[in-house]
């Protein structure tokens, strides 16, 4: 049983890392869309915090996880950021923005379900620590998801309708 829980924690640890990376990628790709740039980084921080907490909690179930979130401030990322400033003057990359928001939403939805699984498990196991972790983190995941949805909604018409 604890194997399965450990696996679920590891799974979520990896999914949160992935979501943080996706948010940071979107942030860097869309530097000319300043709210995506700043909010992407702010919201990635939540996932990075979740990664740390999950790594700490994984120990209770015998899983060794890296407490440090994967870093994205590499040279490659810097180059991507520069080029995003240059393409910011063209309209087509806006389609890419919709795709990135869709991807964030999709990944956050996955993370959200993973937190549901952990919360249910914690209740069954009476693991108060894990339950309170889920109750702290899961709402933030839902907010990440709603943000992606809201940004997509406010940009979709302009992106799609104008030639």
């Amino acid at each position: 049983m604890s194997d399965k829980v450990g696996m679920a924690i590891a799974e979520l640890h990896s999914a949160e890392n992935d979501l943080a990376a996706e948010l940071l990628h979107a942030s860097q790709r869309h530097k000319a869309d300043h709210d995506i740039f700043y909010l992407g980084r702010d919201l990635a921080r939540w996932s990075q915090e979740h990664v740390r907490e999950l790594a700490a909690h994984g120990k209770n179930y015998g899983v060794e996880l890296d407490a440090e979130p994967e870093d994205d401030t590499t040279l490659v990322a810097m180059i991507r950021q520069k080029s995003s400033e240059l393409i910011g003057r063209r309209h087509d990359p806006a389609l890419l923005l919709l795709r990135d928001l869709r991807e964030i939403h999709r990944k956050a939805a996955g993370v959200s379900l993973d937190w549901e699984i952990l919360a249910q498990t914690a209740q069954a196991l009476k693991d108060d620590e894990l339950l309170s972790l889920s109750m702290k983190c899961h709402p933030q995941t839902l907010r990440q998801m709603r943000w992606a949805n809201a940004m997509l909604k406010s940009n979709a018409a302009q992106v799609m309708v104008t030639p």
Binding site: A32, D35, R89, R90, H91, P93, A94, S154, V159
Partner: peptide, 16 residues
């Protein structure tokens, strides 16, 4: 929501 100014400037910037 009606488009806020900073977003409008962005749409002017991208030519839409």
């Amino acid at each position: 929501e009606p488009t806020h100014l900073m977003q409008m400037m962005r749409y002017v910037e991208d030519g839409s």
